[in-house]
Design a protein around this nucleic acid. Structure first.
Lengths: 107, 107
DNA sequence: ATGTAATATTGCAATATTACGATATTATAA
DNA sequence: TTATAATATCGTAATATTGCAATATTACAT
């Protein structure tokens, strides 16, 4: 009890929910927003810009990265995280296909 | 400590995260999916169809409803929940505007 | 009024998430 | 090698979410 019963839903439903979950925290939305505005992203910037501690930022980055949304390149001691635009568009498509097939008027 | 520091983000960021959060659980995705396929929706159906207990379904419906995604109509002892398509499209627009402005290639 | 069916609420246990201090790791610089 | 800077991981406290049994409420039917 307490944990989501993912096994009772089909893969498509779980994929939609998982995609939404990545965007379901304002820190992660902010991080993605900020990364997209840079040529490259040094993580420590995010600590100052977003206003959360370095471990917390690192943790959120891990969630974003685990979802496949980042392409990481190490450049010396700084790490350059870049948006994986193809994967990001895949997220958009996953959610849009849900929206489009769901928004039929029912009453 | 432990709770999301919403106050450090701007309204737009918080709105995107809040919209995503509603879709961040497969039960809620399933409920929206199912509702959109019906002319009307008797909640108790959902218990059988989705496979969660009645209180759990009711709780998820509350989250969906609080987000403004349902138009409820009472019809006797059954309650007819219908998708608020305008609000649902608003959700789609909120997320799409985020996707579209964020997916610029960075490296 | 009493019974019944549908839905909501309450209370609680299990689990997940969020946040951060402390510490470890890694890569460069001196 | 030693210091320093950037990032990751560990451990843990606070809070939130998920799920359900028990119970309450609500609306109809008898």
């Amino acid at each position: 009890m307490g944990s989501t019963k993912s096994h009772i839903y089909n893969d498509n439903i779980n994929r939609i929910a998982a995609a939404a979950k990545v965007l379901a925290h304002p820190a992660r939305v902010s991080i993605l927003d900020y990364i997209s505005k840079q040529d490259a992203c040094i993580c420590n910037d995010l600590v100052d810009i977003i206003g959360l501690s370095q471990p917390t930022i690192s943790q959120h980055l891990k969630v974003i990265n685990s979802a496949g949304l980042l392409k990481g390149q190490f450049e010396g001691k700084s790490k350059c995280y870049c948006l994986d635009v193809e994967r990001f568009e895949e997220f958009q498509n996953i959610l849009n296909s849900f929206f489009n097939r769901t928004k039929t008027q029912c009453c």
